[in-house]
Amino acid sequence: MGKVLMIGAGGVATVAAFKIVQNQDVFTEFMIASRRKEKCDELVKAIHDKGYKADIKTAQVDADDVEQLKQLFNSFKPELVINLALPYQDLTIMDACLACGCNYLDTANYEPKDEAHFEYSWQWAYKDKFEKAGLTAILGCGFDPGVSQAYTAYAAKHHFDEIHYLDIVDCNAGNHHKAFATNFNPEINIREITQKGLYYENGKWIETDPLVVHQDITYPNIGPRDSYLMHHEELESLVKNYPT
């Protein structure tokens, strides 16, 4: 995998960029593109300030605009596009990847701008298009979804003959004593916790009002935390791949 183009320059993109430059034997050419090129340049400076010698290109692009994306992809010719922009932009980036022959990877599934609702159906509809183009599209490669799915697959392969019931519990370990703060995009975080909860039981989906199902959970090495049932995209992909 020689050339990789990453779209986004926020918190998650910063983590990914450092990981990419730590693996320059795999990623030989690297570009960071975002709506504001200066954010990309600031990220490159932070990487160089940490002592990494990587030659990183930067570019400005509006990820809502398929034609702009296509121009950028055709110019740089990446083998892989890593989408760390906003979930609203998943489909435009996937369209540009199909048009330009680029493989695709993201961390969060698509949601429309005008509704606090996300699900995989919009992106799963692209499966045949990517297969026919001979391209790979890997969805949900963040922490959740991503790590939570990898843990489930590992458990299913190495520890269990069948899985009949799965709880995913997740919390942040720190406490900064502020009323509200997020560790990713605040708007997406708010949309996530205000949409309806969802879980799968006895072969059907059950929907709840937002944050009405509460549990006190004691997390290992962290302690007790107020926890609430939410919808999250790995529920859909896990039910699809582990139908029991």
Score class of each variant (00 low, 15 high):
Tyr165Thr: 14
Pro145His: 00
Ala59Val: 10
Ala16His: 12
Asn23His: 13
Tyr200Pro: 14
Thr14Ser: 09
Ser148Gly: 13
Lys113Ala: 13
Asp216Ser: 14
Glu67Gly: 11
Trp122Gly: 09
Glu207His: 12
Phe30Pro: 11
Leu98Pro: 15
Ser237Gly: 07
Pro243Ala: 10
Trp124Ser: 10
Gly10Thr: 02
Ala13Lys: 06
Gly101Leu: 06
Leu105Pro: 09
Gln68Trp: 00
Met1Gln: 06
Glu67Leu: 08
Phe143Asn: 05
Asn83Pro: 12
Gln123Ser: 14
Ala133Gln: 06
Phe30Val: 12
Tyr52Ile: 09
Leu135His: 03
Tyr242Asn: 12
Gln24Met: 14
Ile163Lys: 03
Asp64Cys: 15
Ile56Lys: 05
Gly2Cys: 02
Ala179Asp: 11
Gly174Asn: 05
Gly11Ile: 09
Lys19Tyr: 09
Cys100Ser: 14
Tyr200Gly: 13
Thr58Gly: 08
Ile32Thr: 08
Leu86Arg: 09
Ala181Trp: 00
Cys102Met: 03
Lys196Pro: 07
Ala9Arg: 06
Thr244Tyr: 08
His214Ser: 11
Asp25Pro: 13
Ala54Asn: 09
Tyr52Pro: 06
Ile222Tyr: 03
Cys40Val: 05
Ala63Val: 12
Pro210Ile: 00
Pro243Trp: 00
Val147Phe: 07
Gly8Ala: 09
Thr218Ile: 14
His214Gln: 11
Gly174Val: 06
Gly197Lys: 02
Ala153Val: 02
Asp209Val: 07
Thr182Ser: 10
Lys132Ala: 15
Val239Tyr: 00
Val169Phe: 08
Glu162His: 11
Gln22Met: 05
Phe160Gly: 06
Asn23Asp: 12
Pro186Lys: 00
Asp114Gly: 10
Phe27Glu: 00
Asp114Tyr: 05
Ile138Arg: 00
Ala108His: 09
Ser237Trp: 03
Ile93Pro: 06
Ala181His: 09
Ala116Gln: 02
Phe143Pro: 11
Gly10His: 02
Cys171His: 01
Thr107Asn: 11
Gly11Trp: 04
Gly140Asn: 08
Glu119Val: 13
Phe73Tyr: 13
Ala96Met: 07
Ala181Asn: 11
Thr194Lys: 03
Asp167Gln: 03
Lys196Gly: 14
Ala59Phe: 03
Leu69Ala: 09
Lys113Leu: 13
Glu38Met: 09
Val21Gln: 05
Arg225Asp: 11
Ala9Met: 08
Ala125Phe: 00
Gly142Thr: 05
Met1Ala: 10
Asp25Asn: 15
Phe160Lys: 04
Leu238Phe: 07
Ile206Phe: 01
Phe184Cys: 04
Gln71Trp: 07
Pro220Asp: 00
Leu198Thr: 01
Tyr104Trp: 04
Ile47Met: 06
Val81Ala: 14
Thr136Phe: 02
Cys141Ala: 03
Ile20Gln: 00
Lys37Val: 10
Phe27Leu: 08
Ile217Gly: 05
Gly10Tyr: 00
Met94Thr: 07
Cys97Leu: 07
Glu233Pro: 02
Phe130Arg: 01
Leu86Val: 12
His232Ser: 07
Lys53Ser: 15
Val81Pro: 08
Ala125Trp: 02
Gly140Met: 04
His158Met: 04
Met94Trp: 08
Gly142Tyr: 00
Glu67Trp: 01
Phe30Asp: 03
Gln149Arg: 14
Lys39Glu: 07
Val4Ala: 08
Ser148Glu: 00
Leu105Ala: 15
Ala137His: 04
Ala59Trp: 04
Ile168Val: 13
Ser227Val: 12
Asn183Pro: 03
Phe184Ile: 02
Glu131Leu: 12
